[in-house]
Simulated scan of single mutants.
Amino acid sequence: MERLKRSLLEAPIVRKEKDGEVYEYFVHPITDGVPPLDPAVMREVVVGVVRCADVERVDKIVAPEAMGVHIGTAVSLAVDVPLVVVRKREYGFDGEVSLAQETGYSEGEMFLNAVEDGDRVLLVDDVLSTGGTLTAVHAALESAGAEVVDTVVVIEKGEPPELGFDVESLVRADVEDGEVVVG
Rank of each mutant, 00 (worst) to 15 (best):
V69N: 04
G72Q: 04
R89G: 07
V69S: 06
G118W: 05
P161S: 14
A78T: 07
R6F: 02
D19L: 15
L99T: 02
R172Y: 00
E162T: 11
R57I: 05
V97T: 08
M110N: 03
E17A: 13
I30F: 07
V34E: 11
T31W: 10
V124Q: 12
F165Y: 13
V115Q: 07
V14Y: 08
M1S: 09
V79M: 03
K88S: 07
V154R: 01
V81S: 04
F93P: 04
V50P: 05
V45C: 02
E44M: 11
V154M: 08
R43H: 12
E96R: 14
L134M: 13
L9D: 00
R3T: 08
D54H: 13
V58F: 01
G118V: 04
V115R: 06
G145S: 07
V45W: 01
H28K: 02
M1R: 00
P64E: 10
V86W: 10
L9R: 09
V181A: 05
Y23C: 09
V137G: 02
E116R: 15
L123Y: 10
S7M: 03
P12H: 05
P29D: 03
V84N: 06
Y105A: 07
V115P: 06
G118C: 01
V22A: 14
V27N: 06
V86Q: 11
S129N: 13
E96Y: 08
T103G: 05
Y105F: 14
M42V: 02
D126T: 09
V41K: 01
V58S: 00
Y91D: 12
A114I: 03
E44I: 03
T31F: 06
M1H: 09
I13E: 04
V85A: 02
R51A: 08
D59Q: 08
T31P: 02
D32L: 07
D150K: 06
A146I: 14
Y25P: 03
P82C: 00
E162F: 10
R6S: 14
E2P: 01
A139I: 06
V47T: 07
L8A: 11
V152S: 07
G178T: 12
V149F: 15
V167K: 11
G108Q: 13
V124C: 13
G131M: 05
F93S: 15
A139D: 15
P82D: 00
E179Y: 08
K16H: 04
L8G: 10
E162H: 08
E90T: 00
R3I: 07
E159V: 13
A53V: 02
V41Y: 04
V127Y: 08
V154N: 03
V124I: 13
A11M: 05
I61D: 02
A140P: 03
V49P: 01
